[in-house]
C-alpha cells in the first residue's frame, strides 16, 4: 500500500454563481475498481478493491452521494449538479474498500 493517493480531477462549470444557480460538477479519480470477479493466471480470485462511496458536501452539507458497486468502470467518473446557495467549500470524497479516503476540494463564490 505504498502508492500515494491519486489526485482527483474536479471541474465545476462555474466557480462564481448567483444563489439558486445549478452548478455542474465533473469529477474523475484514478482507481483500478477491481471487481473481485476476475481471476489471475493461477485461477485465484483477485480480491475486490473498489471505491464504494462518493460524496459531495458544500460547507459540510451533503448535496449528492453515490454508493458504487463493482459494475462501475475503472477510474470512476461522476457528473452531477447541485443548487448554489452560499459561498464556501465544495468537498468531494471517495472512500475505498480499505477505508482510505481520497479528498478533493473546490471553492465556490455565491453572490
Amino acid at each position: 500500500m505504498s502508492t500515494p493517493a491519486p489526485r482527483p480531477r474536479i471541474r465545476l462549470d462555474k466557480k462564481e454563481a448567483k444563489a439558486g444557480d445549478l452548478i455542474e460538477v465533473k469529477a474523475l479519480v484514478a482507481h483500478i475498481m477491481e471487481s473481485g470477479q476476475r481471476r489471475d493466471k493461477d485461477g485465484n480470485v483477485i480480491p475486490r478493491k473498489i471505491i464504494n462511496r462518493f460524496t459531495c458536501e458544500v460547507n459540510g452539507k451533503l448535496v449528492f452521494a453515490c454508493d458504487l458497486e463493482p459494475a462501475i468502470s475503472a477510474n470512476p467518473y461522476m457528473q452531477f449538479k447541485f443548487k448554489a446557495q452560499e459561498s464556501g467549500k465544495v468537498v468531494l470524497t471517495w472512500i475505498d474498500d480499505d477505508g482510505s479516503k481520497i479528498v478533493g476540494e473546490e471553492t465556490l463564490t455565491v453572490s
Binding site: V63, F64, C66, E69, P70, A71, Y77, Q79, F80
Partner: peptide, 27 residues
C-alpha cells in the same frame, strides 16, 4: 445480465436542485 445486479445507488436531497447524474459502467 451482469454477474451481480448492483451498479450504483445515487442519493439526492432537495439541495441537489436537480435529480440527474452520469457515470460510466461495466456491462
Amino acid at each position: 445480465g451482469n454477474p451481480r445486479g448492483g451498479v450504483a445507488t445515487f442519493h439526492f436531497t432537495s439541495d441537489t436542485g436537480v435529480a440527474e447524474a452520469s457515470t460510466r459502467i461495466r456491462l
